[in-house]
Simulated scan of single mutants.
Amino acid sequence: MTIQRHDTKPRMSRAVIHNNTIYLCGQVAGPEHRFETMTVQAESMLSRVDALLEEVGSDREHLLSATVYLKTMDDFSTFNAVWDSWVPQGHAPARACVQAPMASPELLCEITVVAAVK
């Protein structure tokens, strides 16, 4: 069983594939959206998930699990509105959503996902 690491840096890889399972590193909004609203940041973050999944041979229909980190649970319903329009009907992954401090004060959300290879 080989382990494939993509875009590996000293502290992490952007994605790791093992046994046809893809593990993505935490994704946040793109730099151009980091001072925007929760809606804009969530859309940007999920767009980055889409791009990374495509890069490593998967898509959102193959999501297995997601862990969502929100700076404040006050944004829970706003985040869910974006999430609900992003997840394909019938393909919702197992999901957890927690409040957590962010690595940078302007960030409002982060996500880690696990997906199957297409």
Rank of each mutant, 00 (worst) to 15 (best):
D74Y: 15
K9F: 15
S77N: 10
Q89K: 02
K118P: 06
I111E: 04
D74G: 09
E55K: 15
V40L: 08
Y23I: 05
Q99K: 03
A94L: 14
S104E: 12
N20W: 10
M73T: 15
T67H: 02
K118L: 02
T39I: 10
K9V: 15
V117N: 08
M73E: 01
V49W: 01
A96T: 10
R60C: 14
R11I: 14
T72W: 11
L46E: 06
E110H: 06
M1F: 12
A103R: 06
A94Q: 15
W83Y: 09
C25W: 03
A66Y: 01
A29D: 06
V49C: 07
P10W: 13
P10D: 06
T37V: 09
Q41T: 09
A66K: 01
V16R: 09
T78C: 12
D50R: 12
P88I: 06
V82S: 06
A115R: 01
I3S: 04
W83V: 05
S104A: 13
I17W: 09
N19D: 13
P93M: 07
D50L: 12
M102K: 02
V82F: 08
G57N: 05
P31D: 10
E54I: 03
S104M: 10
A29V: 11
S65G: 02
N80R: 10
T39Q: 11
Y69T: 01
V28D: 02
R48P: 09
S77L: 11
T8M: 10
I22L: 02
V98K: 11
P88E: 12
N80Q: 10
Y23P: 11
P88M: 09
D7F: 14
S13D: 15
Q99R: 13
S104Q: 07
